[in-house]
Design a protein around this nucleic acid. Structure first.
Lengths: 248, 248
DNA sequence: TCAAAAACGATCAAAAACGATCAATTTATA
DNA sequence: TATAAATTGATCGTTTTTGATCGTTTTTGA
């Protein structure tokens, strides 16, 4: 019974019972308490658990540093359906842009075994796609911790050096007037991505449809296709402007 | 019973039982423990299993994202001492470059409460410094998953747009001939960082001193200061070339 | 607030695992 | 067959892991 095995058992019990106790563990694993304490301290250093007097409790933090922990659960299945359709439009060999929204992030799971090149400013995307068959290009510039993404003029310049087949972007709101973002930074990024790709796809769940938001930054025609779970009749104005709508 | 046969048996047992034990394997395969240990180390190098004290366990999911999980334990205290000194040279308001080595990474812990700007191509560094008082700038370009860092010509161009007060770089080897790297990518990055900073610091633990390595890429004078735990008499040639040596 | 009990970590010692080194053996190659 | 190269095993000093002791810190409850 070495450390690795004990580690597994300790973490397993922590996950199932929500707590561990030094004495119980020592008894259960047939090993001295001092060793258990050393194990717990070590795991605490590794950030695997939170040490208490007498044992340990789970870390409530997300184990993965870059994640959409909160947003990821909202409208998850709708977003997944949207992203499944989006992934179906991608061909092997494509070069695609992905922006830093939570919707676009969920595209990762559907493309991780594809042979494509992804250019992105989103840390969660980078993490999700590292060590996959996807080739990654990271947009450089100033890092915005709140958005877990890279923004700024260097980022815009970086994008301008590339040309992609497809761009996948998200927005904060959408109406007949056009696209809305909740920051200038994100608006600038979305525009740059759209301008340097052949086709721009807007991934947008129903909760954002016909919800003008903070900043109106682009006309609807900036994108070529909208993929959404909203009812088609909510987006009739798109047809008039030549924007294709795919409903999931 | 050659290595290939043993490899199959070891991996088979690992898959079925979830663990292997050096002594048991030696007994079961009728071969000495030292050979088993050599096998396990070799398979560990190949990434087929994860070595533990006394045996091995399967490699499960990709380990923790963006961490120097394996290297981080090697020479850790020496590296920490080096980085403590390095951090002492940094002033509030400084703009610094950090490269993607495991030594330089350990600098993070000492600067995370400083008011400085860090420009880096290293994912572990970005992760360690996000949500701290440090302002982050990420070097853009093609992502190299093996090194957890960004390399390539875009990265070099990105660096050229900035000018930093200090650059902190690591190398794979160091001798009177100069600096050695284990890839051209890392060499190019180190040179670019050095050229666009006022002062370049080489962080280098004793294990790399006077160890010419794969690629000789720059003369010693490329850096202005070496911070190391090696004995000063091992680096007497530095003085002649005007390179300052700080010993921890 | 104070005292007893529990948990804790520093220190030391023993056991196990380990790797460097060198010799013996096997395998490959000329 | 002779030679070189690779593999394997034995020895031995080193490192890692583990447990016991004991003084200190934290918790608990009167």
């Amino acid at each position: 019974m070495n450390f690795q095995q004990r580690k597994n058992k300790i973490l397993a019990q922590l996950a199932s019972r929500g707590e561990v106790d030094t004495r119980e563990l020592a008894l259960a694993l047939d090993i001295s308490e001092i060793t258990i304490r050393r194990d717990l301290n070590r795991l605490s250093d590794e950030g695997q658990l939170y040490r208490t007097h007498g044992g340990a409790i789970p870390v409530d933090q997300p184990p993965l540093p870059f994640q959409f922990t909160h947003k990821a659960t909202a409208n998850q299945s709708a977003k997944d359906n949207i992203c499944r359709k989006a992934a179906a439009t991608i061909n092997d060999g494509d070069i695609i842009f992905m922006d830093c929204g939570s919707t676009v992030f969920r595209l990762c799971q559907f493309i991780k075994n594809r042979k494509i090149k992804v250019i992105t400013n989103s840390m969660p995307v980078i993490q999700a796609l590292q060590n996959t068959t996807v080739s990654l290009n990271i947009i450089g510039g100033e890092y915005d911790a709140a958005r877990q993404a890279i923004h700024g003029s260097m980022a815009i310049e970086h994008i301008a050096r590339y040309q992609a087949h497809k761009a996948f972007i998200g927005v904060d709101g959408l109406s007949a007037k056009g696209l809305f973002a909740h920051s200038e930074k994100e608006a600038d990024m979305a525009l740059a991505l759209a301008h340097h790709s052949h086709t721009t796809y807007l991934l947008c769940d129903a909760s954002k449809i016909n919800k003008p938001s903070y900043l109106h930054f682009a006309p609807l025609e900036t994108v070529q296709t909208i993929i959404t779970d909203a009812a088609p009749d909510q987006l009739q104005y798109c047809k008039k402007k030549g924007v294709k709508v795919i409903t999931v």
